[in-house]
Design a protein around this nucleic acid. Sequence first.
DNA 1: AAGACGAAAGTGGTTGA
DNA 2: TCAACAACTTTCGTCTT
Length: 317
Amino acid sequence: MVTPKKETEEGKHKEGKEDNDNADYGETVKECPECGSKNLIRDYERAELFCGDCGLVVAENIVDLGPEWRAFDFEQVSRRARVGAPMTYRIHDKGLSTLVTWSPTGHGQYKLKRWQQRTHIANTTERSFIFALSEIDRMACALRLPMNIREASSMLYRKAMKQRLIRGRSIEGIATAIIYITCRQYGVPRTLEEVRAISRVEQKEISRAYRFLLRELDLKVTPASPVDFVPRFCSLLDLSSNIQSNAIEIIKRATEKELTNGRGPIGIAAAAIYIAAILGGEHRTQKEVSDVTGVTEVTIRNRYKELSEQLDIDVLL
DNA sequence: AAGACGAAAGTGGTTGA
DNA sequence: TCAACAACTTTCGTCTT
């Protein structure tokens, strides 16, 4: 993710303003509009302000949204033009409903029948698309995801549909995988387990759809960083914010020493949190951390042994 | 009694011939 | 397509507090 450095003022005004209504939100907002939490975290590297409790991105400035974004130039252009109601991707026809008037004069029944046949296919795909969007919305709500992620998910689904990738596959599976992918792209990753819990399909199918989409849509999803999980896990464990920053510090040092290579990011995050909590006098048992993060106590032990030894951290219980 | 520890065997995904 | 492989899980007996 590359944060945009100051371009010319011109460019800022033309590009930025309409696309991101929360442009200066970050300076004023003090609590999460979604859950009311005051635990807001400022991430300068990613140029975003997000809620430590629900993961809601309150304000952000992300420009690099991946290669697929640019393909939708037309919509972006029409979005910038201040004409008509704002369009949203979460409505199946982008909010532009077409009213088909039927004239009693003309060729009557026969033509109507032809029209119905021709549009039958369109109607069924349309229907499944509506269903997919409602599913995306349902899951996004359940995961308390911010609006921008929901919109991005809807867009991705639309793209997959345009490329005829849905045919013969489960809508649920694809939709779930898309949620999973989008969370990753926005740096607020959910674990596979968390996503599975709110989905109607099993993990195996989510994984299959996930790999399939990455391949077919040629998406680049950088491996999740352990740091991305820390705020949410810490708040689930009811740990104070300085524990949180200590855990992130531990992860950064571990990354520098390349202790994280080839290890699962969640296990690293779990161990770092476990260590930071003990050092900060807010001890949590391995079981508690395990329950929240979804990695086993064994893995937490192994990671935390490695980290504490290699980083010379004395953890006295 | 609860938590931490670690050995050993099992599982699912990745890789390379 | 298959086997080797590494990370992680499951299970379980033991030690520590």
